[in-house]
């Protein structure tokens, strides 16, 4: 605290309110830690030379003054070791709605850059700031957070320490995770942890599953527990399959990922070769290009995507909805 009161100049006595000074000092004491009557008197004496002993009643009046101003101070009871505890004070931090919205916009922007570490740090910072806001501002802050970051999964919802998970990834540890799968409910999944990523506002852990011989990616907020961590280091080479696809039109301007390599570039068309680790994710990417993308190779993936598209079309033909 900056306001360590030291009164050395008694000539100023007429020009200050000594009672107010004592109360400010008691407030600062309570900010640091809970105190009882004895400690209050003792500390006041240390700060104010010739300070008279305050009676219980005077301390009571001083604390009432602070309470009237908006401080919540408990009464001394057995449960709090007969000390006064400052629970709330009116000097909390306040920020405007516009400032909150700017903070949320920046968090969203960081998320769009897939910078998960920065996103985690911002979430931690928001927690600290929120803890120091006035109750009404805190309420507004949380509602702004909820509405502006509706699609964002914030890292404070994870049961586990994300930095520990990152360590496991660096060491390629085999983890058995209790995962709440949207498809099949709670189940144990074992994978050789590879990396943590952020995509579409959610955090993921990537890893190779030996049983299914596939690279999986699991949403961190769906991991309920880390059941076991294997001590041995893994040197598993994940299975990749090569795919060739063609992009046309506006999609040629899309930024490709690090797994993609441009084989051929024409005026309105590019041929891309991609090393695919997860088929589901690959299909999602290809489908999101719409009719501006065609898989060229391998034939089985061409067939698979055609089946998917035909199933989608059947949905519209069968439902018979007339708008």
């Amino acid at each position: 605290m900056q306001n360590q009161f030291q009164r050395s100049d008694y000539s100023e006595l007429d020009n200050i309110s000594l009672t107010a000074l004592r109360i400010i000092y008691i407030f600062n004491m309570l900010l640091k830690s809970p105190c009882d009557d004895k400690e209050i008197n003792q500390k006041l004496k240390e700060q104010i030379e010739d300070s008279r002993e305050l009676s219980k009643d005077t301390i009571c009046i001083y604390l009432h003054t602070l309470r009237l101003l908006g401080c919540a101070i408990t009464r001394p009871t057995r449960t709090n070791n007969f000390k006064y505890v400052l629970l709330l004070h009116p000097f909390k931090f306040h920020i405007t709605k516009k400032e909150m919205e700017t903070l949320m916009e920046l968090r969203k922007y960081v998320s769009s850059l897939c910078e998960w570490k920065t996103a985690v740090e911002i979430d931690d910072l928001f927690d600290t700031i929120s803890a120091h806001l006035t109750p009404s501002t805190k309420k507004l802050f949380h509602s702004t957070q909820k509405s502006s970051l509706s699609r964002e999964i914030t890292s404070n919802t994870f049961f586990h320490d994300i930095k520990q998970l990152e360590k496991y990834c660096k060491q390629n540890k085999t983890l058995t995770l209790l995962y709440n799968s949207p498809e099949s409910g709670e189940k144990n999944i074992t994978l050789a942890a590879e990396k943590i990523t952020m995509e579409n506002g959610a955090f993921y852990i990537w890893g190779y599953n030996e049983d299914t011989e596939t690279t999986m990616y699991l949403r961190l907020d769906r991991i309920l527990d880390i059941k076991s961590v294997s001590l041995r280091k893994n040197k598993i080479k994940p299975k990749l399959f090569t795919v060739k696809y063609k992009l046309q039109g506006k999609s040629t301007c899309e930024v490709l990922s690090e797994e993609d390599f441009i084989l051929e570039k024409k005026e309105n068309e590019i041929i891309v070769e991609s090393k695919v680790r997860n088929k589901f994710r690959f299909f999602q990417k290809i489908l999101s290009y719409g009719n501006e993308c065609t898989i060229i190779d391998p034939p089985e993936l061409k067939e698979e995507i055609t089946t998917k598209l035909k199933n989608m079309l059947r949905l519209y033909n069968d439902s018979g909805i007339e708008c």
Binding site: S17, T19, A20, R22, I23, I24, F27, C60, I61, Y62, H64, T65, L66, R67, L68, L69, G70, P90, F91, H94
Partner: peptide, 21 residues
Amino acid sequence: KVKISASAYRVLLLLQKLNEN
């Protein structure tokens, strides 16, 4: 009605207001 120190209350209120603006 609780007893308070009126002048101290004014000083602290002033501190609160200066903290806001």
